[in-house]
Each structure stands twice: as structure tokens, then as C-alpha cells.
Design a protein around this nucleic acid. Structure first.
Length: 154
DNA sequence: GCCAACGTTGGC
DNA sequence: GCCAACGTTGGC
């Protein structure tokens, strides 16, 4: 089993939005970065666990965990001209973009903020990609030790 | 293949 | 709103 982190702007899709979905499950659409796509398409497996991270907001933070409930399949929003993630160059017969389904596992009682994570950047969280300078990946792997340490902060 | 221009991300 | 970082685009 592998561990991951998904970023989402809470104004777009928050962990509370996920909690309101039927079966607390939703597809993770809109990823339009090749490295992030490759992680989802090639490496994510059903049952893998991931952090739900709120970005571009007042308090950036890890706010909970999800499980991968369906492995990668084509992201239909890439073919929809009315969707904000529409990609005119993508082709349904040879999809470029993929998504997975995620199911809410735990909504933390207390968010683990980016500010808090940074305090451990040179120790327990050394090498954590979220803290790397200039990091912009919206989907990234998390090591098991980083996973366990962040869970210990909640 | 190079690289400048441009758009996006995301913290602050 | 600002700005640094980075990915993508497109001319050459």
C-alpha cells in the first residue's frame, strides 16, 4: 500500500464537500499536470491512502484522509467544453487525463496546518515534497514515515 | 533542441 | 494583490 497527498482549494472542493457526497465518495477530476497524472494513472492502487490538503486559502492544512476506492480511468471533464478543466487537445479515444475515486476516511478534528508542518521540515519531515521550495504538484507521494508522523500531529 | 514569453500555482 | 517558481507554448 502506498501513501499520497491531494491538494484542493477548499473554495473549489473541500473535505466537507466530500463528506456530503453519496457514500462520501467522489472522483478526483481536473488534474492537468503530467507528473501528477502519472502518479494517479500508473502508481495509485485501490486501497491506497491519501491526505486531503487545503491549498490557496486562509489556513493551508492537511484536513483529513481518504482511501482510493477506484483506480485511474479517463477524466471526462477534459472532453466537456463547458467545464473549467476542458482540454481541447485531448481525445476521448486516447485520453490524456485520468482521475481516481476517493472515499473519505477521516476528517481531522483539528487541521494540521502548513505552518505546523514546516516546524519539522528539517527533522521528521525532511524531504517531504509539500515543503519543498517551489512545490506545485497537486498530487504527490508521501513516505510511510511522513504519513505516520503527520497522523501523530492530528 | 533552445529559450523567451506567458500562464498558473500557491504562500504570504 | 504580490511575487517567486515552475510548466507549457511556440518561434526559430
Amino acid at each position: 500500500m502506498s501513501f499520497w497527498l491531494f491538494k484542493s482549494e477548499p473554495g473549489e472542493f473541500s473535505i466537507d464537500d466530500l463528506a456530503r457526497k453519496r457514500s462520501k465518495t467522489e472522483h478526483w477530476d481536473g488534474v492537468r499536470n503530467y507528473q501528477a497524472r502519472n502518479f494517479m494513472r500508473d502508481e495509485m492502487r485501490k486501497g491506497d491512502r491519501a491526505f486531503f490538503y487545503h491549498s490557496s486559502c486562509a489556513e493551508p492544512a492537511v484536513v483529513g484522509t481518504v482511501r482510493i476506492s477506484r483506480e485511474a480511468y479517463p477524466d471526462h471533464t477534459a472532453f466537456d467544453p463547458d467545464d473549467s478543466h476542458f482540454d481541447p487537445k485531448s481525445n476521448p479515444k486516447q485520453p490524456t487525463w485520468f482521475m481516481v475515486d476517493v472515499k473519505l476516511q477521516e476528517r481531522f478534528d483539528r487541521p494540521v496546518t502548513l505552518a505546523e508542518l514546516k516546524r519539522y521540515a528539517d527533522r521528521e519531515l525532511a524531504g517531504f515534497r509539500l515543503l519543498a521550495r517551489g512545490n506545485r504538484l497537486s498530487v504527490m507521494p508521501v513516505t510511510e514515515s511522513h504519513w505516520n508522523f503527520i497522523l501523530s500531529l492530528r
